[in-house]
Structures are given as C-alpha cells and as structure tokens.
C-alpha cells in the first residue's frame, strides 16, 4: 500500500509517497538523495546503514519507513558537511581513520549516539559501543583513537 508519509530527516520534513514497508535506507538513498547511509548486508549485521532515530543508532536497511512518522531521523549528512565537519568527522579526518571508508558513515552515527550517552568514555567502552559496526579494512585502532579524541574535544575533562 502506497501512502504519503511525512518523514523528518536532518531536521527537514519530507512528504514521501512509497509503500510503508519500504526500508528507510532505500527512501534515504533513492528518494531523498542522501547517499551517506550505505547498503552493506540488508540483514542488520554490519552497521553500514546506521542512522539516528530520535538519537539512537539504528539499522536503516530493514527498518520500515511506515514506523517512523513523527520520529526524527539523522543521517551522516546531518552531522556535518565537507565544509563544516562535525567534531567526530574532524577527528576521523585528523586520525586518518579510514581506508576504503565504506563503513565510516555507520561508525560516525554509532559514535555520535554513544558519546551523547557517555561523553567521557574509556577505550574499551568505545570498543564495546562500536562492536556492532564492521570494518573490513582494519581501521579499528584509528577509529577508536578518533572517537576518544572527539570525546575529549566535545566534552573537555575538567582540569
């Protein structure tokens, strides 16, 4: 059943006319032109498709768009832009935390949701928080460093 739906993505409302069972990821990429969220497995196993839904990191590859009326979706494009990077994106760039880069959108989203909950984490807390996100290039050590660096920048520890 196709039905118009108002979806809030990165603070903007979009009226979209798709079957309510359509995966959010397809709507983001093919209807809204937001290609930052990536198809990796379609099985909620790799994390490349992660977006924030009301601030929580959520797989978008099988999340039906019909469940999202009135919810706030944030994609990697909503974190920052190439000209104005989010502190997490800047930290990833500073640490050169990436090789092929395909997983990075999901990593940034998972890290954002985590730091919002735990602003001053340890390395092992970051590792646990990102464990659902796969990286096949082995950029993990740099990604851990980048997230810790961003945390320190966003929430400097009291001197």
């Amino acid at each position: 059943m196709s039905k118009a739906l108002t979806l809030t993505v990165n603070g903007q409302d979009h009226d979209i006319d798709v079957p309510l069972t359509t995966p959010l990821l397809d709507v983001l990429r093919n209807h809204l032109g937001l290609t930052g969220s990536r198809y990796g497995c379609g099985l909620e196993q790799c994390g490349a498709c992660m977006v924030l839904i009301d601030g929580r990191a959520t797989y978008s590859c099988s999340r039906e768009v019909g469940t999202l009326a009135g919810r706030a979706v944030t994609t990697v494009e909503g974190l920052g832009s190439a000209a104005a990077l989010h502190p997490l994106q800047q930290a990833f760039l500073d640490e050169q935390a990436g090789q092929c880069g395909y997983c990075l959108s999901g990593m940034l989203i998972a890290a954002k949701a985590f730091l919002d909950q735990n602003p001053q984490p340890t390395r092992s807390e970051v590792a646990a928080a990102l464990d659902a996100n796969l990286c096949r290039c082995g950029s993990h050590p740099r990604i851990l460093r980048a997230v810790l660096k961003a945390a320190a920048k966003i929430h400097p520890k009291a001197a």
Partner: peptide, 13 residues
Amino acid sequence: DLRAKLTGSGFIQ
C-alpha cells in the same frame, strides 16, 4: 579522498 567519504559520498554505489 577521505573527506568526501566522511560526509556521505565518494562511492560507485
């Protein structure tokens, strides 16, 4: 190529 890949683009997909 990394800045583009951190901000949502850069791939054949």
